[in-house]
Amino acid sequence: MATLEDIEHLIARTALADRSAFQELYQLTSAKLFGVALRVLGTRTEAEEAIQETYIKIWRGAGRYNAGGYSPMTWLITIARNTAIDRLRARRAGGAELAEAEDIASSDPTPEAAAIAGSERALLLGCLEELPEDRAEAVQGAYLMGLTYQELADRFGVPINTMRSWLRRSLLKLRECLTR
């Protein structure tokens, strides 16, 4: 069963252009990252393209992994999330309708990837629950749907500056809860 140390080691080997380490990294982590891309983008075709782009970035950026201070799964998932969000925003900017969510419940998760997901992270979800419901939804909308302040303001029916101060206060409350 892969540990975070194993993942970190594979990222380091990938930085040295070790193709078999990169392939192993893909085998261990791609199901989790594909799940995230599917959730953000909603269609298999776009999620597949996003994951392809994500692993190209991982191959080319592995040498910079250490400099960011991220834990290894955070680093990988963040690249996948940002890549998917960029595509989602490009789709929105192009005026396309939200793609119909396909039935994405048909594939099986891999046990390896499930085991990698951290267990200590229930903390954030608990802290989100301490926020008023709409504030928690705004934080999640920004992270998982890539909504901008303007889009959040439209969605919640408040002026953009109100949205900003809501969200900023919520972020400080979150930080206070997370470090409690």
């Binding site: 392939q23 893909y26 791609s30 199901a31 989790k32 594909f34 799940g35 995230v36 599917l38 959730r39 597949e48 994951i51 392809q52 692993y55 190209i56 191959w59 991220y70 834990s71 799964m73 955070t74 998932i77 963040t78 999330r81 994405i104 594939s107 099986d108 998760p109 891999t110 990837a113 499930a114 997901a117 951290g118 992270r121 229930a122 903390l123 954030l124 979800l125 999640q140 992270y143 998982l144 979150l174 997370l178």
Partner: peptide
């Protein structure tokens, strides 16, 4: 690290083999 927890509840999905081949 904290925000990535929002992806914890997202189930992993096996990507089709063609994705690796394309990479």
């Amino acid at each position: 690290d904290d925000f990535v927890a929002m992806t914890d509840t997202i189930p992993p999905r096996q990507a089709p083999r063609r994705v690796w081949r394309a990479i």
